[in-house]
Each structure stands twice: as C-alpha cells, then as structure tokens.
C-alpha cells in the first residue's frame, strides 16, 4: 500500500494545478459569503483529482506494468478508495478550516455546530461521488467512464426534475399516493433523535462503501492486461 499511496500522491503533486487549487480555495472563501458552496465545489475538485489517478494509471498501457509490481488487484482497488478519501478529506478539511478562519476574521456570527454539520453532510454526499465513480472508472476505463458518468448524471437530473411526476404516475397505478409516502417518510426521518440519524447515515455510508468496493474488486479481478 505504501508504494501505491506514494505513487498516487506524487502523481498529483507533480501537477502544478494542485497548488493552484489550494490557492483558489483561500481566494474564493475570502470573497464569497456562500462558504458551503465553496466547500462543496473544492471538495468535488479534490474528488475528481483523486479519480484522475485512475486515468493516469491506465494511460499508455500503464496497468500492465502496475500489476507486475508487488500489488494485488484487491490491494490496488482498496488503495484507490483510501487515497481518494484522504485526498478528499485534505481538500475538505482545508476548505472548512479556512471557512471558519474567514468567518472569524470577518467577525461573522456563526453557530459552530450547525456549520460543522453542514460541512459534514457535504463530505457525506461527496463520498458518494467516490463510491459511484471508482467502479465505473475501473470497469469502463477513464475515458469511457466519463461518458457513463454523464449519462448517470443526466438520468439523475431527469429524476430530480420530473421525479415527482413520474413517481405519482407510477405509484398511482397501484392505488398508492407515492408523493405523500415520500413526504411522510421524510418527516418521519427528520423527526428522529440525532443519534439515530447519525447511526442511520453511518449505516448507509458503510453499506454503500462496501457495495462499491465489492463491485470494484469484482471488476478488477476479471480484467486482463
């Protein structure tokens, strides 16, 4: 694992764009009030940068040599998740710290816990980018993977905008009010005490992580170089 982490870390820090990104975070945070957006944006950038190590690995038939090194496919896959999270955390944490720093300097009033919670939720949602992108990138390769991501994104957007109509239509056929069900469930969840919500979110996180990891490993085991 050390070798893989060293490699990925050095792959990214070679690029001048990494330094530019960090500078960008600091800059944007001082100028915009919508810190939450900035944190999300830069965390996403961090995510995508980490994902780019996958395409760098695959470039120029590099994966053949990769697996002649002391690496197993399982180890390679797991390292990608760990590295991606570490990189994401790096960006996210820096952005959060700067966010608080800026708020303190500008003497803005803020509730630490609610801001922190917002930030943690951002991290939570961005993890899903990793959980979805790694298996896709591994199965389809970095280039085709991008197209697949776009398609998934498009489907997601369609659901967001037309979801309500589709849901009502679909469930109406069975004589159930789908929307009411969703709203009721949402209210039910929101009404739960904090620790249950925390447990629930952690549970979903872990479940998705494991499923994503299992799929990725399965994809890698079948690959030949």
């Amino acid at each position: 694992m050390t070798g893989l982490l060293t490699k990925d870390f050095r792959l990214l820090t070679q690029r001048k764009s990494t330094a530019v990104m960090f500078a960008g975070i600091a800059l944007m945070l001082t100028f915009t009030m919508n810190a939450s957006f900035v944190i999300s944006y830069f965390s996403l950038v961090g995510c995508l940068m980490a994902m780019s190590t996958l395409s760098l690995d695959q470039f120029d038939n590099g994966m053949a040599f990769m697996f002649t090194l002391p690496v197993t496919k399982k180890l390679y896959t797991i390292e990608k998740y760990i590295f991606s999270f570490l990189w994401l955390l790096g960006f996210w944490f820096t952005a959060c710290v700067l966010q608080f720093g800026v708020m303190i300097v500008q003497k803005t009033e803020f509730n630490f816990f609610s801001v922190a919670l917002d930030d943690v939720m951002t991290l939570f949602f961005l993890s899903f980018v990793i959980f979805i992108m790694i298996p896709i990138n591994l199965k389809f390769g970095a280039d085709k993977g991008r197209i697949v991501m776009l398609i998934i994104f498009a489907i997601a957007i369609i659901f967001v905008f037309l979801g309500e109509k589709i849901l009502t239509f679909a469930t109406g056929a069975f004589g159930i009010d789908g929307m009411k069900f969703i709203v009721d469930t949402g209210n039910f969840i929101a009404g739960q005490p904090a620790y249950i919500l925390a447990l629930g979110t952690s549970g979903i996180f872990i479940a998705f992580a494991l499923i994503s990891l299992a799929i990725s490993i399965h994809v890698m085991e079948k690959k030949e170089y």
Binding site: K7, R10, F59, D60, N61
Partner: peptide
C-alpha cells in the same frame, strides 16, 4: 520486470520513482 510497452507514468520524475520503488 521490464516490459517493452508499459512502465511508470510519464508525469513522474526519477526521484518519484525512487520513493515509489522504496515503498513497494
């Protein structure tokens, strides 16, 4: 191993290769 058509990523420098090999 030395393969004819596959190797370290081109964006790396020699000193990176040193550290990477040390890690492996």
């Amino acid at each position: 191993v030395a393969l004819s058509d596959s190797g370290f990523s081109l964006v790396l420098k020699t000193k990176d290769v040193v550290e990477i090999l040390a890690g492996f």
